[in-house]
């Protein structure tokens, strides 16, 4: 078999693989959306959940998911960024770095229920945060750090050394080179990490059951003071997210329309993630264009 033929064959195989992947993805998403979208209406999005009568909505859960996402990213992103910069720019290629890398990777294989229980004992009980959005956000940080750090490291090291040399030759300090040249260049890759991460935050249930809790007390959306108990911005209140709600509805709920709520919530979740992903990518691209010379 000559090179040309094998090229064609391999291309064919890759197309085949991609075709199968796309089919799986599309049919999965299609299945969820097809089952859920017809039941989504304004009432569903804007009313409170019901414990055991039909007709409940997901207003609070939806908001909690978004709020938790923001808090979790605010906490985990800077840490992961620092650690990623360390691993890609400062770390020497020796056994200590190897140990650090390995331990980060091992951390990512912990079952979420273990992270949840650890978070429960440490944050909820020891640090007295109670079942709260804050405790949930910190627990999610444990779980996001590995993937995010790794991703940032990878995207930083994919920036060609030429750029570093250029920065140094202009007389910039190493730190300025990193923050002003390397980071903006690596932005698209970092963004991917961030989006993957937010996907996991949206979809995580087991770790949150023990930290952010699985009840959504009604909150006052007109109260903008985060220090009061009833404010929707209060990070110390328990908060059931959409994923936890789906879990709860499927496992222990006696609402007659549990099936409908679950499929509609899944569809809502997917749509929200989609909007978030596209939005993040759009903003990221704008930022990328603004910060670099790329067109």
């Amino acid at each position: 078999m000559n090179a040309k033929k094998s090229d064609k064959l391999a291309t064919g195989i890759i197309y085949g693989l991609v075709g199968i992947v796309v089919t799986i993805l599309i049919s999965l998403l299609g299945y969820i959306l097809y089952n859920g979208v017809p039941d989504i209406n304004w009432h569903f999005l804007t009313s409170e959940a019901q414990s055991f009568s039909a007709g409940g909505g997901v207003r609070d859960q939806l908001f909690n998911s978004l709020y938790l996402l923001i808090l979790a990213l605010i906490i985990s992103f800077p840490i992961a960024l620092g650690a990623g910069i360390y691993l890609s720019e400062y770390a020497k290629d020796n056994w200590i770095t190897d140990i650090i890398r390995t331990s980060i990777e091992v951390l990512s294989s912990l079952p979420s229920v273990v992270v949840g229980l650890f978070g429960y004992l440490l944050l909820v009980i020891q640090l007295n945060l109670g079942f709260s959005i804050l405790a949930g956000a910190i627990a999610l940080t444990f779980f996001n750090l590995p993937l995010l750090t790794r991703n940032i490291e990878e995207s930083l090291s994919s920036v060609p050394d030429l750029q570093r040399e250029a920065g140094t030759s202009l007389g910039l300090s190493g730190w300025k080179t990193i923050t002003k040249i390397i980071l903006p260049m690596a932005l698209p890759g970092i963004l991917t990490g961030l989006i993957l991460c937010s996907g996991r935050i949206f979809g995580e249930a087991a770790a949150l059951i023990y930290t952010a809790g699985q009840s959504a007390p009604s909150v006052d959306y007109g109260n903008w003071n985060p220090f009061t108990e009833t404010s929707f911005l209060n990070p110390m209140r328990p908060a059931e997210t959409l994923a936890v709600h789906i879990w709860k509805v499927n496992t222990e709920s006696v609402t007659p329309d549990a099936g409908v709520i679950s499929s509609a919530s899944s569809a809502v979740l997917i749509i929200v993630i989609l909007i978030f992903n596209l939005g993040a990518r759009y903003l990221g691209n704008k930022l990328f264009k603004k910060m670099t010379a790329a067109k």
Partner: peptide, 8 residues
Amino acid sequence: INITVQGG
């Protein structure tokens, strides 16, 4: 009175 109910 503020009541928080959780599973687990």
